[in-house]
């Protein structure tokens, strides 16, 4: 179904994401006490400590594995919440129309102009229990509005297609129209918004943690960077401390980006039109 150009991006992106997902799931069982300190501080990578150790002798490899769980969880949860919120206000509003649409648009417009990062900093600073889930929730709340706008306009476009009208005339109920005629056509965009939301959340969490506003128990890539920065790892030349978590963020981000590109290629109207043109037999 996907063009040849789209498919390698999707395959590479999905493979990388799958590897990180497996690590995220397995890490809690493989790694116990990732933050336990040891006698050997600031050791470069060796067979004993694959990614070396921190200034207080913590194993960076173990920390990165444990951090994967935190970062990926935040990505998935925030992505899912972003999609849920944007579907509620974007898709729901556009489908129901009238006052619902006005209210949904107003709300998403208000959230859209809120400055994201400062708000994030204030809210995370204000929340008492900064668990991974709370961070994900906060990130989702400040970032769903863009996705809602995209989904709203796409819903409006699908809703006005002839076959949706035809299904209405055939007597389909509202729910059935939504679930059977409209939603399937939104799936690629919803998937893309999820990926985009997850990517944004992982980067935002890394940023927050780096500023010391991350999850309290510090189990994410961003928090490793935070401690590395605090201990002046760069000046000490302890590259093994900050390169692995940094690379993880970059690689997972790139993988999610690749997935998004390939979805985009599929739903881009121009590319889609080109794919359909031969079937429609030229001009009418």
């Amino acid at each position: 179904m996907l063009g040849r150009r789209g498919s390698w991006k999707l395959r590479v992106g999905l493979t990388i994401c799958a590897v990180f997902a497996v690590v995220a799931v397995l890490a809690p069982f493989l790694v116990h006490h990732p933050n336990r300190s040891g006698p050997d501080g600031l050791q470069p990578p060796s067979l004993h400590h694959l990614f070396g150790t921190t200034d207080i002798g913590q194993d960076v490899f173990k920390q990165v594995l444990a951090g994967t769980t935190g970062s990926v969880t935040i990505g998935v949860v925030a992505g899912a919440l972003t999609v849920a919120l944007s579907m509620l206000f974007g898709v729901g509003g556009a489908f129901l129309g009238g006052l619902w649409d006005d209210a949904g648009s107003l709300l998403s417009n208000v959230f859209l102009v809120l400055p994201g990062l400062p708000l994030l900093i204030i809210v995370t600073d204000y929340v008492d229990s900064r668990s991974v889930l709370v961070i994900a929730l906060v990130i989702a709340i400040v970032s769903w509005a863009g996705a809602a706008r995209v989904l709203r306009s796409q819903t409006l476009s699908v809703r006005s297609r002839d076959y949706v009208d035809a299904a209405r005339v055939a007597g389909e109920s509202r729910w059935r129209l939504m679930l059977r005629e409209i939603l399937p056509n939104l799936m690629p965009i919803i998937a893309s918004q999820f990926v985009f939301g997850a990517l944004g959340a992982i980067l935002a969490e890394a940023g927050l943690s780096f500023l010391g506003l991350g999850a309290a128990n510090g189990a994410s890539w961003g928090s490793i960077l935070f401690f590395a920065q605090n201990a002046q790892a760069i000046t000490l030349g302890a590259w093994w401390w900050f390169v692995p978590p940094g690379l993880c963020i970059a690689i997972l981000g790139a993988a999610l980006g690749l997935i998004n590109f390939s979805i985009d290629e599929r739903i881009n109207p121009r590319l889609r039109a080109a794919a359909q043109a031969p079937r429609r037999g030229g001009k009418r």
Binding site: R161, D162, Y163, D165, A166, A167, V169, A170, G171, R180, E181, P184, N185, R280, R284
Partner: peptide
């Protein structure tokens, strides 16, 4: 009532390329 009405009044649309759902 709309459903009952539409069991009596039906419509054929202009463009058969867009009035049928491509995915069903």
């Amino acid at each position: 009532a709309d459903k009952r009405y539409r069991s009596r009044v039906q419509m054929v649309f202009q463009d058969p390329f867009s009035s049928l759902n491509p995915s069903l």
